[in-house]
Amino acid sequence: MAYWLFKSEPDVFSFDDLIAKGDAGEEWDGVRNYQARNNMRAMKKGERGIFYHSNVGKECVGIVEVVAEAHPDSKAADPKWECVDIKAIQPLARTVTLDQAKVEPRLKDMVLVNNSRLSVQPISDAEWAVLMELGGVD
């Protein structure tokens, strides 16, 4: 199973907003970066990810699941832009900040640590395990 990180500004769309969407989840729309779009094209239904609050907080806050694979972004005029749908699974017991990730040696190669601007990015199995440990998830 692959793991992913989804970044959102919490004052625009927060993890609590995703929780409020329930099991139907929400379209992860508005992505206008080819690498991020291609990451979404690689996602499979059932894969898990981290919801990351960018700008305000700069922290991993919850676990999400892909509930619909790549499809046209309903808010894009150009059909080349695609998105997936995700739903909230659970909040992390403890948030994991970008500063924590940057000083954690086991996360030194994580995309978030090295390219914090990419809005949708992969997480390795080992990185996922570290994030779960730091986030207090069994």
Rank of each mutant, 00 (worst) to 15 (best):
V67A: 06
A20H: 07
E59K: 15
E65D: 03
I89N: 04
E69V: 08
G46W: 08
R37N: 14
V61T: 13
I63H: 01
A68R: 15
D29N: 08
V61C: 10
C60A: 15
D78F: 05
D73M: 00
I89Q: 09
F15H: 03
A20V: 03
D85W: 12
Q100I: 07
D85P: 01
G22K: 06
I50A: 06
K44C: 14
K58T: 12
K102A: 10
L92F: 14
A20T: 05
A36M: 08
D85G: 00
I89S: 07
P72T: 10
A76D: 03
D73T: 00
G30T: 02
K87T: 05
T97H: 07
W81H: 05
K58V: 11
V31M: 03
L98C: 12
R94L: 08
D78K: 10
I50S: 02
I50K: 07
F13N: 10
V66I: 14
K58Q: 14
D99G: 14
N38V: 01
D16H: 06
I50C: 12
N33G: 02
L92R: 03
A93E: 15
E104V: 08
A42P: 03
V103R: 11
L92Q: 04
P91E: 12
M43I: 09
R48P: 00
W81T: 09
K87D: 04
S14T: 07
N55K: 14
V84K: 07
V103W: 02
G25Y: 02
K102W: 07
E59R: 15
A24Q: 13
Q100M: 14
L98E: 11
N38Y: 12
L18G: 09
P79H: 03
A68Y: 00
V56I: 14
A77E: 13
S14M: 10
V103I: 15
E104R: 11
R32D: 08
E59F: 09
A24I: 09
K102S: 08
P79G: 05
H53C: 04
D16Q: 10
T97Y: 00
A77T: 13
C83G: 05
V96I: 09
Q100F: 06
D78W: 04
A88M: 09
D17T: 11
D16N: 02
K45E: 15
G25E: 09
A36P: 08
H71M: 06
G62W: 04
G22H: 07
V56K: 14
A36H: 02
G62A: 14
S74I: 00
